[in-house]
Structures are given as C-alpha cells and as structure tokens.
Design a protein around this nucleic acid. Structure first.
Lengths: 224, 224
DNA sequence: GTCTATACCAGGATAGAC
DNA sequence: GTCTATCCTGGTATAGAC
C-alpha cells in the first residue's frame, strides 16, 4: 500500500517543502520579503533551520520556486486564450480587460507580488535589474503597443517606454495600496487606471465614447 | 584670526559631517541605499566608524539630513514661483513643466531619489509607508487635480488616486532608468510622459492641439 | 530528511584613550 | 571630535547524530 495519508515515507519531504513555501507566502505577505529571514520561515513552518537548505539554497531560490508555481497557474488559466498580439488597446474594453487581468494576478498572489517588487528595488540601482524586470513584466503590453504602431497609430512615445510607464504605475500603485485597511476597491482602481491610460487627464474626446453617462461637464478651459 | 582654512578647531566637525554626507551620496548613488552600510560610509569618507555616531544616530537619520538639504535647495529654487494651486494640468505646457520639474529634481539628486525610493519599498508592505510617501510626494499634483475637479473637469477617477498613479509612474520609471548606460535622454522621457498623461494611449482628439505636426495618422480602428 | 548544536561573519553600536 | 578596540546581536550556513 503506497501512500495512505499522503506519506510514502519519502514523499514526506514534499510535505516539508510545501510547508516552507506556505510559511514563506504568509510571511512575505505580512512582513514583506526583505524583512523575512530564513529562520522566520522555518520557525513558522514548524521546521528546523537546517531543513530549509535541504530544499532551497537561499531565499532567492525559494522565491523562484514560488514564482514558478505562479506562472504555472497563470499559464493554465490562459491556456485557452492563446493571447495573440492582435489586441487593440485603444479599445476601452480590451484595455480594461488587460489591466484588470494584471491587477487581479497581483492581488491574488500578494506574497509573490510583494517579494518580486521588493527584490527588484533592493538591488543596486546600477545593476539594471529594475529596468530588466520592468521590461519582462510588460512584455505583453509592449507587444500590443508595437502592434498598434505598426497599424499606424501614433503613441505618446516609444512603445517600450510607454509600456514600462504603464507597468511602473501598476506595480507601484499595487504595492502602495497593499496597506491593510481602507484601500479603494479593486474595481474602482481598475476603472480609473483604464480611463487614465486610455485618455489621460484631458478625458475622452467630445462625444463620450466611454461607458460613462454624458452628464460629465466639459473640460476646464485654460487658466493662469 | 578666527577661521583661515575653514578650520576654527571646533568647526572642523562640520567638515567631517560634510564628508560623511558626501560619501553617503556617492555610495547611495552607486550601490544603493539598502546595500550601503554605515561602515562603508565612514570608510569612504576616510573617517573612523565611531565618528559616524557623533553626527547621526543611524543611517535613516543621515538620509533625513540629506533630504533636508534637498528641500532647502528646492525651496530656494521655487521661492519666486509661489506656486499657487491654480494651474491647469490639462494645458500641455503647464503639465510638461510640472513633470519636467519633478524629473529634473530626481535626476539632479540621484542619491536622495534612490535612497528614498528604496527606503519606501523596503518597509513592510502593511506599514502603509509606501502609500504615505506616495501621497506626500504627489501633494502638488493632487492639489492641482482637485482644482481641476472644482472647476468642473471630469477626471479619470479620484484626484488622490490619479495623482498617486502619476507619482508611481514617475518614481518607478526614474528608478528603473537609473541603470548607467543607454537610457533614453531625459527630454524624450518627459515628452512621452507628458503626452501619455495628457491624452493617454488614444492620443489627442481629432484636431491636433498638441505640439506635434499633423502628419500623425488617425487612431487605429478596432480589431480582433 | 530532519533534527540540534554550533561555527562563523557582517554589521551596529559603545567605551575610553587621545 | 576623532580615533582604536571591542562587544554583541542577528542571521547564514554547516556538521553530525538520529
């Protein structure tokens, strides 16, 4: 009789590994990645310090494992979508869907989002890691923007830069709003970011093609 | 004869203090705030470890001093401007001036910008520091946006949130672009951020009221 | 594979002579 | 005020028994 209570004797290791990952998630979310020590993780997992190194060489490696899990989950979720680059981000619904997806992933995986963001910023500024991470995480957006440019659309600037700007906004705002209480609810944030990204401060052109009712007053005239 | 070579015996302390600050600036800029240890600073300043504590109680306090210097400089620079909140950020020139000012300050004070940003992110996510810092640093923008709303302009969302989004974009993009080589030049970045903030991805309304020549093709039609 | 125990070091901070 | 010397903590990582 191989495994009865999920313990094939040897597969018990996987249990410890899982416990460590789970504890890490909890602590990363609460105290943050940088302030969580390896000893904190093992203690929270009810394991000895030494056991940690049987599974991970370092905290960074554990984070990598966490990230791999996340990517698997995301892949499984997007498996049916294919996600070609032929999306028109100047279409409000499509834009909102993209931003909402990004936002939801960050919210549903708070520990990883926190850890990645902190790790990105903690590295030496000259290392270029921040830029690299930002580029990677905005790949999809960038490709969509490049597609727009190819179709003749005029963007505010280089797609790479614009995509990075949007990503910077998303990542940092998400992090800042993690504070436990009274954050604006996710829907409102996504709607705001959508409208801002789509039309900026100036607001939509004359005939409101947004979802909003037409009771919005016109743009303010110039001032001092 | 009081001071001959800037050493009144006792005023020599100020020299050490300045040396520490200067060394800290250099190291913060190169290795970042988090990776710079107090011993690194004293070593770089050619002083003994113990001397540090004669001037600052901690690294954080040194950062505060650095920040105070910066604010003095900024104040002196803006002294003639008064800077009332009656600015219209939907006016491209005014918007660009604001963004350019923020960008220039960050670029001209790289060490402080790095340190503040890292310190903000390194704190526990639940502490709310990130949100607090973000709010403080976007106070001016927020006030301008509130002014717009009072005048009847329709923003993409709550002024506080929109201001924070803009600030998040600026701070993080600045940090990411600090990597020494091949960053796009500051002018291009500011222009891009201006256009994005003003009109978003959709671009300006039909009759181009932006600076750009009218050779820009129309917005891309809808697609799959 | 997991535990206990411990070596080890980086770094913060202080004591006390000059 | 600045130095040298040192203490002491927290945290990483390993050794070796079970």
């Amino acid at each position: 009789m191989p495994r009865e209570r999920s313990t094939t004797r040897k597969a018990k290791a996987a249990e410890t590994r899982a416990a460590l990952l789970e504890a890490a998630r909890r602590l990363f979310s609460e105290r943050g990645y940088l302030n969580t020590k390896i000893t904190d993780i093992t203690a929270a997992a009810g394991r000895a310090t030494g056991s940690f190194y049987e599974h991970f060489a370092s905290k960074e490696e554990l984070l990598t494992a966490l990230l791999a899990e996340l990517e698997d989950a995301v892949d499984a979720h997007v498996v049916a979508m294919e996600h070609p680059r032929e999306h028109d981000l100047t279409d409000r619904d499509q834009l909102r869907d993209h931003l909402a997806a990004a936002w939801t992933v960050m919210r549903d995986n708070r520990p990883v989002a926190v850890a990645l963001f902190q790790a990105m910023v903690a590295d030496d500024p000259g290392s270029g890691r921040a830029w690299r991470d930002l580029r990677e995480q905005t790949r999809t957006i960038r490709e969509h923007l490049e597609y727009l440019v190819e179709r003749g659309h005029r963007l505010p600037g280089d797609p790479e830069l614009v995509a990075a700007a949007i990503g910077a906004m998303l990542l940092t705002l998400n992090y800042a709003l993690l504070k436990t209480p009274d954050s604006p609810d996710d829907d409102r944030v996504v709607e705001t970011l959508t409208d801002f990204t789509l039309h900026g401060l100036a607001g939509p052109p004359a005939p409101s093609q947004s979802v909003r009712p037409p009771d919005a007053p016109p743009a303010a005239p110039t001032t001092a």
